[in-house]
Amino acid sequence: MLAHCAGMLDLVALPLWVGTLVSAYRLDPQQAGGLVTLFLAGAVFSSLAVAPRLHRLPGRLVTSLGFGLAALAFAGVSQTTDYAWMAGLHLLAGVTSAAALSCTHGTIARSANPHRLFALVGMALGVFAVVFFAALPPLMARWGGDRLFQVFAGVMAVAGAVAALVFPRTVAASPVPASVAAAPRAGLGRAVWFGALGVSCMALVQAMMFSFLERIGIDRGFGQPAVNAVLVALGLVNLLPAGLAALLQRRWPAERVVLCGPVVQLALVLLMTQSQQFAPYAAAASVFAAVMIFTHTFAFGLLARLDPSGRALAATPAMMMAGAALGPVLGGTLVKWAGYESLAVAALLIAIGAVGCFAQARQAPGLRPDAARSAP
């Protein structure tokens, strides 16, 4: 739970992250988005390097060391305003934290019921989001924007220390046949690649829109207290989707849920970008991240069935952040040259691609039984 919360920090923190870089560090939207993109790009390449080697890496060492180095990187960001230094440290933080997160997700993927366990760590992320949004904006208002990166460093440090003590040295026995588990070098199927690409498309829309959620509210005159209240509400709502996904695991087929996720996500983007009134903006913003969490939980379970080795899901940071890495800088560029409304056009095109990819992410009939349904 702690490792997932630290590794998925960007999913929670993007609005404040980009907003702080714009308001406190006086960067333009494109520059601010570029720093976050460096963090996420580093995470993508790190995850792609770690995932194929999952079976040979000492998970406890990689997880604790990765978060420890990320803590040092964010602590360094809090001490400088030089853009080049901030860029390098963002990149280092992304590389190290994603290595830790890849080992975390690879361990979850090889548990007896990956869908249920991923839902559990998702609920922990929801609790973390509530505390984060309730505590951090007042702290930053009083002490300055550098407190954001000090909090990031603290979160990473705690996760690294706890991982060093209790992270599993070995993963749980795989529920799949030994012949499958013993073939870590087998190629990933077409359905797995399409499923991963679908997750990346949704992550791109999530990061592109989420990065500017706070700025949209401020620039439209809703006021900082009202926008902060929306962020707290968003955190409270995020307590629900992972638990709901766990309850609905056997009632709603994952293949259909992942098809609906991009469509709902697009509808919320349209509300946030096109409405000039506070109520529609607040309603859409408060549930926006929940759609990604709910859909991703089902996608995680689906990909765990399609690839029981766990290698594909060890690359979950790459799936999420390959899309998310482009989101802040793409969103910043669009906002800079065409305004917030242009985000909706980009979201529409990406959502079409996501639905097309998820339509191909299906297990061949009769290949093997549903591992999640047969798990205790």
Rank of each mutant, 00 (worst) to 15 (best):
M1H: 11
L2R: 12
H4I: 00
M8T: 13
L14P: 01
T20K: 05
P29R: 08
Q30Y: 10
L38W: 00
A41C: 09
L48T: 10
A49L: 15
H55C: 11
H55G: 12
R56Q: 15
P58M: 15
S64R: 04
A71Q: 14
A75V: 13
V77T: 10
T80S: 14
A84E: 14
L89I: 10
L91H: 07
A98P: 03
A100V: 07
C103M: 11
T107Y: 14
F118I: 09
F118R: 10
A119V: 06
G122Q: 14
M123F: 02
F133D: 03
G145P: 15
D146N: 14
F149K: 01
A153V: 01
A157P: 02
A163R: 08
L165D: 15
P168R: 11
V180M: 07
P184L: 04
A191G: 06
M202Q: 09
A207Q: 05
L213F: 07
L213T: 08
R215H: 11
G223M: 13
Q224P: 03
Q224S: 15
P225G: 11
V237S: 10
Q249N: 11
E255N: 00
T273L: 12
P280Y: 07
A285M: 00
A289M: 09
V291W: 06
H296R: 09
T297E: 02
G301F: 01
D307H: 00
R311G: 05
A318I: 06
M319N: 03
M321Q: 06
A324G: 06
A324S: 06
A325D: 03
G327E: 01
V329S: 03
T333I: 07
L334T: 05
W337K: 10
V345T: 13
A354W: 01
C357R: 05
A359F: 02
Q363N: 09
R368A: 13
R368N: 11
D370E: 08
A372E: 15
A375N: 14
